[in-house]
Design a protein around this nucleic acid. Structure first.
Lengths: 358, 358
DNA sequence: TACGGTAATTTGATCGATCTAAACTGTCAA
DNA sequence: TTGACAGTTTAGATCGATCAAATTACCGTA
């Protein structure tokens, strides 16, 4: 490409803007803007002319420019602690859908359980001008992160887990009673030595699930010696180590409530490796009821939380909070439900299996 | 500066801008801007003064305003076909990391296998001014979607699947030879009647995996009557139906290559329900080697693709394409590797995941 | 015909940053 | 003293839209 020493200026004009459309349609910038925003002020004949020009010239709206002037982005930031956990992937996806349904956009980001990354993401989101944030905080989120968020005045809520819970909006599931359901079920089946596997990470969900376990055990009159908590990372590999530790304990527990399905997955696999049949020789309960977990064999009995319900409640609340930033903190707690399948040996009605004639 | 009680306007001033910082630090807007962009032009004494003011006043950078003027966003859009598939969640997460590492930002969006949603997402991304797009196209993506993308001049590439493949940049895995590895393994173990389960969706990955199956079967001299393709949706529920269909076929296949691990998951579960032991009575091969799949029991033999490698190649290519938009289409194909575990009955050592090359 | 009032459209200022080109500072050689 | 020349800093103009207020068009009615 020959580069002429053009003494004047290069013919750079590229982007199609409002002005170009206005010229083509024989109207002013302002009118085009009204058409774009579907204002009822525009006469329909004019609207058609403008829309034709829009089409013709291949106009692309510039949201950055628009929101610079208007001060609005109609965008909510969604920060997920770990998108590779199917429960949260599902949650993120549902939040996205619900926001779109309400006419809002979302920016989804994954902190990967890194508080530093989470801080960077939050900063970036503010720089992008999101009007609100739905945050699933990482384990070990600094209180200062939340305090700074509060100070900044940006509407936000915490979902499924929380830091400084009482002082911020929150939407989540009932971890405490969810685990209780699991323990109740096991006790009803005659188990007394029941272990809790998981909860190595420091966040409210972890603490509450463990507390639910303790409380349920005590409520059933099961003493300290019948309890056993083996923390582990939320990961089948570490879950495997943890369940071996449970099996080595004396007196040996006959059942385990797992932190979540991901942990239960590793537990079930390891039990099988040990020649112990889950649902016959040992009972296992999960948590979350991940969409895919019903196909594990033996099918997992677990505490079900529908990510969609949490997502919809979160979207509902964040949009209300954006509209009324000064209203007080609000909490929405989704109730869990126990889904009985095969892994506790309880009689179960569900379809796909017929092996366990118990 | 005294603010007289001008009877009209409210004292709205809220946002801290460059002007405020400039005033506080006793310099001009321009200098503050230079500091923000870490320009070496600024004298260090000045820089410190500005940075102090930045800190003091709680300045928040406005990316929208900056990119309006500069014309740059340093952002790449990432469109994922289905974020609830752990393979893609992992991929998205790795893309995000690689971009951040290179000093770029990403906007991640999930089309949920909906072409309409995908179109809306692509439009929105252009409106946000992304400088490039990494697209994992949904099944049934219209050619026009891709053509429009080409016409628009926005640098983009397709990842893992493609439409109009030859004419656009592409980064993906070798589906064809991946499946071949699976078939080869089964044939080496003595299987002759081998079914292919999956591939109900219309996209290149699906077609290529099926073609790989056919080609491998033919290469081993296995006739039409020893082949069997049962399409199914990528979902354990439908996979369950499909494998039952395979079992009902006569002569009955002794092994199945599955479209991916998600399908294999449903297949393994259903086989167990039928009293058929995977790895003993029937052989199963998956595809993807999802990070969690090694903990399925019996452990799944599968074709491994590291999402990280695909992600890094995609980021590398899109950044090069953004830098040189006029260079021709380029293809990067990541080679698969067979990971032998238990589900084919091949001799395997201990442990959850011991891998051997195919 | 003039008038009032609503509907439709236009104009100039503005959002908060970056760009460009010009101007300033200080040092050193002529 | 002057001028050259890096190294710093600055003052408008500018990006592409929206806002607010003003203006014009249009209609029916007095």
């Amino acid at each position: 490409m020959a580069r002429y020493p053009s003494p004047s200026r290069p013919p750079k004009r590229q982007r199609v803007t409002l002005v170009d459309i206005a010229a083509a349609a024989g109207v002013s910038r302002g009118t085009v803007s009204l058409v774009l925003r579907k204002s009822p002020l525009v006469r329909s004949a004019t609207r058609e002319r403008v829309e034709a020009a829009l089409q013709e010239l291949g106009y692309v709206y510039d949201r950055g420019a628009a929101s610079l002037r208007s001060g609005r982005t109609s965008t909510v930031g969604v920060v997920i602690c770990n998108i590779t956990n199917p429960f949260y992937a599902d949650f993120a996806s549902q939040v996205d859908l619900a926001l779109e349904h309400a006419g809002w956009s979302s920016i989804i980001a994954n902190s990967g359980e890194s508080p530093e990354r989470q801080d960077r993401i939050l900063t970036r989101m503010r720089e992008h001008g999101v009007e609100g944030v739905i945050l699933v905080p990482t384990a070990d989120t600094a209180e200062e992160t939340i305090r700074a968020l509060i100070r900044s005045g940006l509407p936000f809520l915490q979902a499924t887990r929380h830091v400084l819970g009482a002082r911020t909006d929150f939407v989540g599931q009932d971890h405490f009673n969810g685990v209780r359901l699991g323990v109740d079920h096991l006790v009803a089946l005659g188990h007394r030595h029941i272990a809790f596997v998981g909860g190595g990470e420091r966040h409210s969900a972890s603490a509450e699930r463990q507390a639910g376990y303790r409380a349920a055990m005590i409520a059933h009159g099961l003493a300290e010696r019948e309890q056993l908590v083996v923390p582990c990372v939320v990961d089948p590999v570490d879950a495997s180590r943890a369940i071996l530790e449970v099996l080595a304990h004396r007196p040996r527990p006959t059942a385990a409530v797992c932190f979540n399905d991901h942990v239960a997955y590793g537990v079930v696999g390891t039990l099988i490796d040990q020649g112990i049949r889950p649902g016959r020789d040992f009972a296992v309960v999960g948590f979350d009821d991940r969409r895919d977990i019903a196909f594990l064999r033996p099918a997992l009995t677990t505490v079900s939380i529908k990510p969609q319900r949490v997502a919809e409640a979160a979207v509902d609340l964040i949009l209300r909070r954006i509209a009324a930033p000064d209203e007080g903190p609000e909490r929405t707690i989704i109730s869990p439900r126990l889904v009985v399948r095969e892994s506790c040996g309880a009689p179960h009605p569900t379809a796909p299996s017929r092996e366990s004639a118990g």
